[in-house]
Write a protein that binds this DNA or RNA. Structure first.
Lengths: 228, 228, 228, 228
DNA sequence: AATGAATGAGAGTTCATTCAT
DNA sequence: GATGAATGAACTCTCATTCAT
């Protein structure tokens, strides 16, 4: 699995207030390189994963990012907005990646297997992010209900659509609701990630899990013998 | 599904400080004075489900329970302990119920189906509790890691054991890890419950979902044709 | 001048949140006497007079009142509300006192003289309050515009009414606007109080000033000779 | 009333740090670059009048002046110094204007009338400045006590001197303290301006008020009949 | 001279918890 | 046991000021 990191990625799309984006010559990319926003987000993933959203103090994130407390508020309007932005920035990339990837694949079964591989594969590379996505995002009622749910719903819809296509093509059993399958599938992956992130988080465990989960799910979704 | 409510149940098992539970003779000029603890727990389920653990104020719980703020501290040592107790009181009952139930059932497949029916069935009856178990419990790092995880692990172990038995008996495919199956199963149920609790929570939806999830999972876990 | 203190007066009329009002037996009126609200208001007069509204910290008021910081928020919703309440509590009493007093007096000229004596006399007894009313109240735009101005306007109206009555009775010149006279009169008193409060605040200075100001004003408002 | 504007006037008298005031030859590719100081002061009058000294942010002033935040600190050492400078720049002009004007006038009565006309006339032309002088200047304890008071005192002294001269010349009654008359006079004008600035600020109202206030005051200060 | 991103001290406010009644 | 007023530690966020560019 080498889809590449979800963080430290290219240009940051949205920024609230500052137009900023300082010079950034070709020289020293090190000290004070300027990508404050990204540094803050990376720090936030670490700090939130460690302490949870509420127990994490904004000043902890600032310290981890190597900026002053107030600097965070130049890029994010509130602590909650920091969490939302984290989600936007990272989950959007995950979702975009998956959708692009699925377009290249023909069969619904292969698509489902790919969803499983990608979701688990990417999160295995970034354990802290996995914890943020599976645990932390549920901590702020506001973020969860107003922000995460819609985005999450659109992800579930993507999966449900694959299932429906597979049913139409005769690849998958038709006696189950695509939307329910999407929710159960996502939940299964989330459950596996969740216990992995909370536990010892063994190397390669998620990738190995991916193939077994896919095996079970695809057999479970295959048409019955006499349906064929 | 009529397993009975998870709340307002019999004796409270653990308590930290108070000797409490006053005389309760025939006298008691203040009837219903004894079930303060239960009233507080019920109120906490409601309030936590509505606001989340951190955004809920202890005084909100007190008001909902019809007791003074300080009274809560006669029964629980802290807000966090209130959450722990909730979990203990309600989840323990859920787990105990399931284990007892499973003992009456022969085949591993039937046991798995029963786990699914019970978990979804019970939570459907108490939406607030469902939200507490799927969402709120992840909000306190301390509760999650120190308390919920072990209990949760034992639940997963119960499921894993059923799977292992089924594999030994030739009922279930042997090329998947029982522990992984347990985690994915739980996750699938949690995912279904989670989206249900966050969404419109239609009447009967979880029960209907149970049978489909069971269908998929059991076919997915069935031995391959040439394995038989 | 012995109209009595404006502070430490009888029952507090309004209170926002707490029903409180503890026992208050006939015994020890000293330590922890319970009238927290009044103690906080008195402390606020002192602290605001000394430092100004913005430079005063809520914790300074708390310390001066001998209560915890948070206690202030049991009686007032915000620092600004504390200032508003001060104004309400003290200025209301001043205004009520003056209006009651005026009712007992016959001629408009005597009434005006009385307004001047009372306003300067009462404030002389409480220099800190004088400073709050002449200076501090202008410091919070919100308090000034939304709250003080209306109350202040009603005071000006009282004075203007006296002037109009005097004009109708032929006691006062009719070629000036009652409302303007009211504003100029109030301003003259405010100006005298203001410089007194900022300066050395000599004993008895305001009372002595009262008579001279009244002399000037009343001669200034007397009808011209051929008007009579 | 056409005494001329108090703002945008000639040379700035005091300045703390900067040598500033760059070359200003015929070249200057950045025309109007030199009046930054004045632009900042004008912006400050507007912003302070609108929000009050404390609620106004330095960055608001900067934005209104069309300069960067930091630029303000090239001309003023602090936010407080900005207020002081405003006062110095504007009030000094008012005082200088009045003193020059008074020199041309013979009788004390005419001088007093002129003071009233000028003070109200000038402020009517610049409502924001009126609000700054009547309200805002009282907001910073430091500015008020250390700076405004002395300057203010010298203004009061000017008026008191006129009164004393009038008393010596037999034009004005001698049974009142010149200093008290000065304070009451200023207060009356301040009170009228204050209510005007806070209220609807009708066109011409202050000028009309001036003549009535003068009428009252001068009759009030006239010698008694048998004093003559 | 001018900029404006960055700083970080400091304030108001909240709320879990205590304890005198 | 029950109460709820009181507590005060700890938090997020603001904004005057600085300084590298």
């Amino acid at each position: 699995m080498s889809e590449g990191s979800l963080s430290k990625s290219g240009a940051s799309k949205k920024r609230e207030k500052p137009a900023k984006k300082p010079a950034r010559g070709g020289s020293g990319r090190d000290r004070k390189s300027g990508d404050k926003r990204e540094r803050i987000l990376s720090a936030a993933v670490k700090v939130f994963a460690k302490s949870g959203f509420f127990d994490a103090r904004v000043s902890d994130v600032a310290k981890a990012a190597g900026v002053a407390d107030g600097t965070i508020y130049l890029y994010f309007t509130s602590k909650e907005h920091l969490l939302v932005s984290l989600f936007e920035d990272r989950v959007d990339k995950l979702l975009a990646f998956i959708e692009t990837d699925l377009a290249k694949i023909g069969s619904a079964k292969d698509k489902l297997r790919r969803v499983i591989e990608v979701q688990l594969g990417l999160l295995e590379e970034e354990r802290d992010l996995a914890e943020v996505i599976t645990v932390i995002i549920r901590q702020s009622s506001k973020v969860l209900k107003e922000f995460a749910t819609p985005k999450f719903t659109s992800y579930l819809d993507t999966i449900a659509r694959v299932v429906a296509e597979g049913q139409a093509a005769g690849e998958l059993r038709t006696d189950v609701s695509p939307s329910l399958v999407a929710r159960a599938t996502f939940g299964a992956l989330d459950g596996v990630t969740f216990t992995w992130a909370l536990g010892r988080a063994e190397e390669g465990a998620l990738s190995r899990a991916a193939s077994q989960v896919a095996d079970i799910l695809l057999r479970g979704l295959s048409p019955s013998l006499h349906e064929k």
